[in-house]
Simulated scan of single mutants.
Amino acid sequence: MLDAWLRLWNGDYTQAEAIISPDFTVHAALLDGGDGSTVRGADGLVAWISQTRAAFPDLHFSLQIDPLIAGHRASVRWTATGTYAGGFPGAKAQPGTTVTFTGTDTLRIKDGKFVEYWLNSDTLQLLTQLHAL
Rank of each mutant, 00 (worst) to 15 (best):
L2D: 09
L2S: 02
D3Q: 03
D3C: 01
R7N: 09
L8Y: 11
W9F: 02
G11N: 02
G11S: 08
G11K: 03
D12N: 13
Y13H: 08
T14E: 15
T14W: 03
Q15Y: 08
Q15F: 01
E17L: 05
A18C: 05
A18T: 13
I20T: 14
I20H: 09
S21W: 10
D23N: 14
D23F: 14
D23M: 15
F24M: 13
T25M: 11
V26W: 04
H27A: 14
H27K: 11
L30A: 12
L31V: 11
D32I: 06
G33R: 13
G33Y: 13
G34V: 13
D35T: 14
D35H: 09
D35G: 13
S37G: 11
V39R: 03
R40V: 15
A42I: 12
D43W: 09
G44D: 14
L45A: 12
V46S: 03
V46K: 09
W48A: 14
S50C: 04
Q51M: 09
Q51C: 15
Q51P: 06
Q51E: 12
T52E: 08
R53C: 03
R53L: 03
A55Y: 01
A55M: 03
F56G: 02
P57L: 03
P57W: 00
H60T: 00
H60V: 04
H60R: 04
F61S: 04
F61Q: 06
S62T: 02
L63W: 06
Q64I: 15
Q64Y: 05
I65V: 12
D66S: 07
D66R: 06
P67S: 04
L68Q: 10
L68Y: 06
A70N: 07
G71C: 12
H72R: 01
R73K: 10
R73G: 07
S75T: 13
S75K: 04
W78S: 05
W78E: 02
T79M: 07
A80S: 03
G82D: 00
Y84D: 00
Y84K: 00
G87Y: 05
G90W: 01
G90P: 08
G90L: 05
G90I: 01
A91L: 01
A91D: 03
A93G: 00
P95F: 01
P95H: 01
V99C: 04
T100W: 04
F101S: 01
F101M: 07
F101I: 09
F101A: 02
G103L: 02
T104F: 12
D105Q: 13
L107E: 11
R108G: 14
I109N: 10
K110V: 14
K110D: 14
D111P: 08
D111V: 06
K113M: 10
F114V: 15
V115D: 05
V115R: 07
Y117T: 10
N120M: 12
D122Y: 09
D122R: 08
T123A: 13
T123N: 15
L124R: 12
L127Q: 08
L127D: 09
L127S: 10
T128Y: 07
T128S: 07
Q129G: 05
L130Q: 04
L130Y: 11
H131L: 13
